[in-house]
Amino acid sequence: MNQTPRFRSMVALGDSFTEGMCDELLPDGHYRGWADRVADRLAADTDGSDGFRYANLAVRGKLIGQISDEQVDTAVALRGELVTLAGGLNDVMRPGCDIEHVERTLGALAQRLAAEARQVVMFYSVDPSRRMRGSARIMPQILRLQRFVGDLAKRHDNIALVDLFHVPAFDDPRMWAEDRLHFSAEGHRRVAEAVLQALGYPASFDWREPLPPAAPVPRATKLRADLRWLRLHVWPWLLRRLTGKSSGDGRPAKRPSLERYPS
């Protein structure tokens, strides 16, 4: 029987997904997120006087080129035993996405990290087709990127793949925050469990299991929620696109160095 792997350090790269939006807020004002939840479990299993160390370099809104330019050198220098890499979806969601550039950049990142780290974790993003109106436009790029990531995992023995795409439970609105773009606390909890199981940890629960049926929502309540969503989330997003701004502009990583965790 294989032993559960133990890691003494973890470095997370990416965008808002890995930063942790919109999980519960921590006392320092940062979101918790699935990566922090994974670090909690790994830290609890770490022996030795040095303890467990964790860095999270992810920043919301980052494109794959920015992840490459701003995060990968730091990640390699930190020499984390476990490295998680998620990126490219922000590129895919933008009109005129250069999918070949995304693949080329993501592939170079994965190859460099896999050469340095003991274990790398990558992802199939969730399937938006049943949840987001207008997602048909980006589905060909999402499926192409999924095939590319799958090929990367096949070529590298130390890349573990977490498949969120083929899990219908993520269609449930309760898995998502009010902005309908980022996971809720329950969504982050399930992603963390998916990562831990991909690493060989015994299951704490079935992260693929659907939530119990929800109570019906009155039509008027749904309409008010849609209007609020448009006002608070869609229009600001469109304004940033029109002005060339990003929600992550000027924002530092929440854990830029490999420090003892929990501190």
Rank of each mutant, 00 (worst) to 15 (best):
A185K: 10
Q197N: 06
A214K: 06
W207P: 00
A198F: 05
P218K: 08
R219Q: 13
P216K: 08
A220S: 14
D171E: 09
L152H: 03
E209Y: 00
A215D: 13
P212M: 08
L152I: 00
R155A: 15
Q197I: 11
S204V: 12
P168C: 04
D226W: 15
K154T: 11
W229I: 05
K154L: 11
H182Q: 12
G200T: 10
L164I: 06
W176E: 03
P213Q: 06
L152E: 05
L227N: 11
H156Q: 13
A160R: 15
R189A: 13
F183V: 02
E178C: 07
Q197H: 01
R174A: 13
D179I: 00
D171I: 06
L164P: 09
T221Y: 13
L196S: 04
G187C: 07
D226E: 15
L227M: 15
D172K: 00
F183S: 01
V195K: 01
V167K: 00
A160I: 03
K154S: 10
P212L: 09
S184T: 12
R155K: 14
A177P: 05
L230H: 09
R228K: 15
T221E: 15
R155M: 10
A203G: 08
A198N: 02
V195M: 01
A214W: 03
D171V: 07
D206E: 06
L211P: 02
